[in-house]
Design a protein around this nucleic acid. Structure first.
Lengths: 160, 160
DNA sequence: GTAGACCTTGCCCCTGACGTCAAGGCCAGA
DNA sequence: TCTGGCCTTGACGTCAGGGGCAAGGTCTAC
């Protein structure tokens, strides 16, 4: 099949598939006229990649799974390198969740303190204020708390 | 004070302060020769920004706090807009933690399943007597796989 | 009067995962 | 033959938060 069909069947875009090829993740054979040619195995590779991406894996982290599938294994996680990525990802997730929980606690404490201070002020002088319009922009969570830690989970990017 | 001193006292760089000015977060007065001039209040603003950044706030999210300080309040979170940012951040954190926890659960399940499948395979392969020796950790086109992998004692990354 | 530290603006670079043109090639149907 | 759709490569933009360097201006100390 050609790139348009693969993109449609895999639920992605042609631009994405060309990008995968450009980083060596999904090489494509070519037909006589230069068009990319894919088969059902390539469709499975793309689906494996997208599944892992939904888990927040970066593209580089999907590489062992893709290689595993391409070498003939029935599942992308049948190989030790894939299991290692799983384990590293679990450790990253645990670390990330712990840090976020700590930040949540601190921000919650700051909010409580500031709200109490405001309540005290407003009790002193009752001043009606306008409702602050909340911005509806979705700001993604920032995993770069530690600049040397590889990041995880870009779930808030509208990809799906 | 000039930009170099402010950067040093705030624990950041001159480049960062110029960047803040370029996005309108920290405007600077100018001396006759064009140098940026800052005072102690600006130092407090920068420290407020850095504190919030340590919590994972984006620069845009620090803006209400900075403007609150600049309008004369003793704390950056004395204003309703700042409180609103706190609350939105808390909601984001809760959402993010929930999603990451769910992903963690799913990845953990995948790992357990894949490990069991491998154990079964190796048990079956050991009975005939050959070493399993899977060859899927080869990643031929990958000069630098994970430059920032911290620990986990990654032994299955040959990388060359 | 000059060395050297500090300042200015401006420009290109990086990450990740693509989106969005632009200019042109290939092919099937009317 | 024309039209329209799909394909190609290439280049630039995005978002955040700056890093790094160049060319040149300014100030201070010796």
């Amino acid at each position: 099949m050609r790139i348009g069909e693969l993109a449609e069947r895999a639920g992605t875009t042609t631009r994405t598939l060309r990008y995968y090829e450009s980083i060596g993740l999904l090489p494509a054979r070519r037909t006589g006229n230069g068009y990319r040619a894919y088969d059902e195995d390539d469709l499975r590779l793309v689906r494996q990649i997208r599944t892992l991406q939904d888990f927040g894996f970066g593209l580089e982290e999907t590489r062992p799974f893709v290689e595993c599938l391409r070498s003939g294994h029935p599942d992308g996680d049948s190989c030790p390198a894939s299991l290692e990525v799983y384990r590293r990802k679990l450790a990253e997730l645990d670390d990330c969740i712990a840090r976020l929980s700590d930040v949540r606690r601190q921000v919650g404490a700051q909010l409580a303190r500031a709200e109490q201070a405001r309540a005290a002020l407003e009790a002193a002088a009752t001043v009606p204020g306008g409702a602050p319009e909340p911005r509806c922009e979705l700001t993604p969570y920032d995993p770069s708390y530690d600049p040397s830690a590889s990041d995880v989970a870009a779930e808030t990017t509208p990809r799906g």
